[in-house]
Nucleic acid binder design. Structure first.
Length: 586
RNA sequence: CGGGUAGUAGCGCAGGGGCUAGCGCACUUGGUUCGGGACCAAGGGGUCGGAGGUUCAAAUCCUCUCUGCCCGACCA
């Protein structure tokens, strides 16, 4: 490609709002342009990069025996009503009516669409297992798009779906994806970890997320440096200690102004771990069948030194949404914020108790009277409720497997795999006939990778003061040819030779000064830069510089195509030498 | 949806009731330069986000509204 003809322009200054380096350079180098909040165009450079990522994805999906298809972005709402997600998903789903006033949705994922196909196509156990995928546009009306391509509303996603006759089959396909995803990311040279994850709106049981660890990430990952345990904080477990002792009689004490656990522990001169912290939320429960909503107060109890993990709480009570409760909602149940506990509360509400509280004795809890707490409260005797793990694992908490301290790290979710089971096949009646002639729901899995987000993470990982330096497997062009001599004939013939040899060349044929051309080459970041200048031309040579290492050599123009092919092969070999082959452990 | 912040040329910004709305970069033309974002000269480009109002006079003050960004809620 000639730069003089390229539908793109580099920017000297970062547009306002480009807060991370990766985003700034994608904009400045002319890979992407923003159109609205969370809506971006991929300019030719960005498009070429994502096409390369998609090619890698296709090759790896093919390796595990997948077939590519293409499902529509626009779905009739009917199938989403069948699974209930038409009701349980709120404003995040794009909805409209067609000319005949029928409800339509913009698919944010394709479980419904693919299950609709499956129930028609799958009849017998003999047709299973199956594995299909597509790479397609999604619209998710995220409440807060941010950080460029990291969190957008319209994006391209690889999503694949598996169909099996049983969980054993699903396990195999899941394990194949687990491994294939590591190959995909490592072929893009993006470092990542797989973590145990929440299933969220997808439903299902087992799920892993692939995380690019970076401070720009929004998820918090809990890792054990000792034994390798990794999980999203939303589901991360930790080793908990209980304080078991003989139950003592409950006793009301005056605790003026002790509205927080810290103040309370200070006032009573006790360890915060001897207290029960009461957190109030309001859960929204949506009826899958008709979309009716119901709000209920949720009282969550954790030991004083711990925090409530909202995802765990939400999962424990199967709420569709959870928000902090307002004081009047708490008071309506005869509880006093700051001095609250379920003891003596009135009305209909849900109590969820972390096992640290349920399994410990004689904890201090609120007396529901301003200025008073109870000593020696005990679960079972003084109050009851649902016992679940709802406490948040944090940096320094103990590993559930080996007991060593855990580390917390920020991460960007670049992929997610789910064992759905029969959540969708049952709802949509996608069954197969088994050997005995019985109709059995198909066991499903679903798997996804955000292509644009992957590019954004790569831009974040691979940059320096000069701009981007994407790995050769995903860089839009392999070679950037910079000509500094007036006579264009030699550069033109080099460009032609390299292109004919199958090399992807971005040729700077503009009438610009050397500084401008070098700066743009650095910004765009092709892995190999060829400089045609008077210095080495005297000897019939050009200079070759690697963007990643800065390493420089020179080659005779007569040998150039072969030498460059060799350089490309070397760069590719570096990536291939580091392909991650990681098996799923259970 | 709450809190904050900002919309003035393609990008970055200044101007905050008064004559033709500026600056840097980018762009056009001519010339000189020519291996790390050159120089000189001459140019082109704006309904000051939108609507309504106040005023002799509005980019500037007021009201409403739209949009972007940041924090939170939220999120595969």
């Amino acid at each position: 490609m000639r730069m003089s003809r390229m539908f793109s322009k580099t920017l000297r200054e970062a547009p306002n709002g480009a807060d991370s380096k990766g985003y700034e350079y994608l904009l400045r180098a002319g890979y992407i342009r923003q159109m609205g909040a969370g809506i971006f165009s991929l300019l030719p450079l960005g498009f070429r990069a994502t096409q390369k990522i998609e090619t890698i994805i296709r090759e790896e999906m093919d390796r595990i025996g997948a077939e590519e298809l293409l499902m529509p972005v626009v779905n009739p709402a009917d199938i989403w009503k069948e699974t209930g997600r038409y009701y349980s998903i709120d404003k995040e789903m794009g909805r409209f009516k067609d000319r005949n006033n029928r409800d339509m949705v913009l698919a944010m994922t394709h479980e419904e669409a693919v299950t609709d196909l499956a129930r028609n196509l799958i009849d017998s156990y003999k047709r299973l297992p199956l594995l299909v995928y597509h790479i397609q546009t999604k619209w998710r009306d995220d409440p807060r798009p941010r950080a460029g391509l990291i969190r957008v509303r319209e994006f391209t996603m690889l999503d694949s779906y598996t169909f099996d006759k049983d969980y054993e089959g699903l396990q195999k396909q899941y394990a194949a994806h687990y491994k294939a995803y590591f190959r995909i990311y490592s072929r893009c040279a993006l470092p990542c970890v797989a973590v145990a994850a929440d299933t969220g709106m997808m439903g299902g049981k087992v799920s892993h997320e692939y995380m690019y660890l970076s401070p720009i990430g929004e998820d918090t990952i809990i890792l054990c440096p000792e034994c390798g345990y990794t999980a999203n904080r939303q589901v991360a477990k930790m080793k908990k200690e209980y304080f078991k002792e003989a139950e003592k009689p409950i006793e009301k004490v005056e605790t003026p102004e002790a509205k927080t656990i810290e103040a309370l522990a200070e006032f009573l001169k006790i360890d915060p771990r001897k207290t029960a912290k009461c957190v109030f939320m309001v859960g929204t429960f949506i009826n899958d069948k008709n979309g009716e909503e119901e709000d209920k107060l949720v009282v969550a109890l954790v030991r004083g030194d711990l925090e409530v993990e909202e995802s765990k709480l939400s999962n424990a009570i199967k709420a569709n949404a959870l928000r902090p409760a307002r004081p009047e909602e708490i008071e309506a149940h005869s509880m006093v914020p700051g001095f609250a506990s379920p003891i003596g509360a009135t009305g209909d509400f849900i109590t969820v108790i972390d096992d640290t509280v349920a399994e410990s004795n004689n904890l201090v809890a609120g007396a529901n009277e301003a200025g008073y707490h109870y000593l020696n409260t005990n679960f079972g005797r003084d109050y009851t409720g649902l016992v679940a793990d709802i406490a948040s694992a944090r940096d320094g908490a103990l590993c559930p497997h080996c007991g060593k301290p855990l580390k917390a790290s920020k991460g960007v979710e670049i992929g997610n795999i789910f064992q759905l089971g029969t959540r969708y096949s049952e709802a949509m009646n996608a069954t197969y006939q088994d050997e005995e002639g019985k109709q059995i729901p198909v066991v499903m899995g679903s798997y996804g990778i955000g292509v644009g987000r992957l590019l954004a993470c790569l831009a974040e990982e691979y940059n320096d003061e000069g701009g981007l330096k994407l790995p050769i497997s995903v860089a839009p062009y392999q070679v950037h040819l910079v000509s500094l001599v007036k006579d264009t004939a030699i550069a033109e013939s080099i460009y032609e030779d390299l292109t004919k040899a199958g090399i992807e060349v971005l040729y700077d044929d503009r009438k610009e000064t050397a500084g401008v051309k070098f700066a743009d080459a650095d910004l765009i970041g092709a892995p190999i830069r060829i400089t045609l200048g008077n210095r080495s031309l005297k000897e019939g040579k050009v200079e070759v510089k690697l963007r990643s290492s800065g390493e420089e050599t020179s080659y005779l123009i007569s040998d150039l195509a072969d030498e460059i092919k060799n350089e490309i092969a070397k760069e590719m070999a570096k990536i291939e030498a580091n392909i991650v082959e990681k098996e799923l452990e259970d």
